[in-house]
């Protein structure tokens, strides 16, 4: 059972990273970005095209370029929907479905429908602890997730930008009164989210491989993690991701892997009925 849980934790970290990107945007703009997966996938494709897939750049340079590209695209996307967002968050949310389709179309147009391999530049290492195999990939996922979560925490808890982000997410009126530019804060969350997306995608594709749909499909599970975390809580979604990873792995192993989607939906429904505000809402209940 230990190896099953262990693998679940590693996969769960990936769900957490995906969920964090969704929650960043939801917290500031109260909308869901359904294009998150497709845009992140597009970033991963750029890395592939710049490295093994053709240009032959060093991996780090390709990742840096992909991150810059993702930032530019997120600014563009926010520019497109900002006006819709002012009217209603639901309208903007629906617009992201269209943006997701455009991104997917771009992938198919530029890179075709083939499946590609895109690995992390890691050595073939594996060692064993307590009967569990641990590979360089597992270590990379865990440490990348840890670093991302710590960096995000520091930015949000320790910087002026973080103060602005938290104010906009909980009390937008207070933020406006203080002369904050709400759209700048939105932009911050979109840009951060896009970078989280690319990082998550790069960590996901070594197991799932890269096609026009893999990252989008993966983000559906990240969406479940975000829902279980309450959708407006960053720590909640991080924990939600690991919870989803472990429970899905246990379910697949002990019950039936082909019923995994059914299980995931049931899990989401159950968590919405028992913890409507997310798994951490009990503990922070006094936060009105």
């Amino acid at each position: 059972m230990l190896p099953v849980i262990w693998q679940g934790i590693v996969t769960g970290c990936l769900y957490s990273l995906g969920a964090l990107g969704l929650v960043m945007i939801f917290k500031s703009s109260k909308m869901v970005n359904f294009a998150h997966g497709a845009l992140a996938g597009y970033g991963a494709f750029s890395v592939h095209a710049l490295t093994a897939g053709g240009a032959g750049w060093p991996w780090l340079a390709a990742v840096a370029a992909a991150l810059l590209g993702a930032i530019a695209i997120s600014v563009l996307v926010y520019g497109l929907i900002a006006e819709l967002l002012q009217r209603a968050a639901t309208t903007a949310t629906i617009a992201t479905l269209g943006i997701g389709l455009i991104a997917q179309g771009m992938i198919l147009w530029q890179y075709g429908s083939n499946i590609f391999r895109l690995d992390l530049p890691l050595p073939h290492l594996s060692f064993s602890i307590l009967g569990m195999a641990l590979t360089a990939y597992d270590v990379a996922v865990l440490s990348a997730t840890f670093l991302v979560v710590v960096a995000l925490f520091l930015v949000i808890e320790r910087t002026r930008l973080g103060v602005a982000f938290r104010a906009v997410s909980t009390d937008p009126f207070a933020a406006r009164v203080c002369g904050l530019s709400i759209s700048r804060v939105h932009l911050f969350s979109w840009v951060t989210s896009s970078m989280l997306g690319v990082i998550a995608a790069l960590l996901i594709v070594p197991t799932t491989f890269l096609s026009s749909t893999t990252v989008t499909t993966f983000m559906l599970q990240a969406f479940a993690a975000a829902v279980i975390g309450g959708f407006d809580s960053l720590p909640g979604s991080a924990i939600g991701g690991i919870l989803v990873g472990v429970s899905c792995n246990l379910f697949s192993f002990y019950v039936a892997p082909e019923l995994l989607n059914t299980f995931l939906l049931t899990f989401m429904l159950a968590s919405l009925s028992f913890f409507p505000g997310g798994i951490l809402s009990q503990r922070l209940g006094s936060r009105v």
């Binding site: 103060v163 104010a167 203080c178 936060r287």
Partner: peptide, 29 residues
């Protein structure tokens, strides 16, 4: 705000989850 007009709304409009100091930082953004 930049020009020098500050508004204290009715009901005070605190950023409730932020600390006292963070609220002040918010005001000085």
């Amino acid at each position: 705000v930049e020009m020098g007009v500050s508004y204290v709304p009715e009901g005070r409009a605190m950023a409730r989850a932020l600390s006292v100091r963070e609220n002040l930082v918010l005001g000085g953004m």
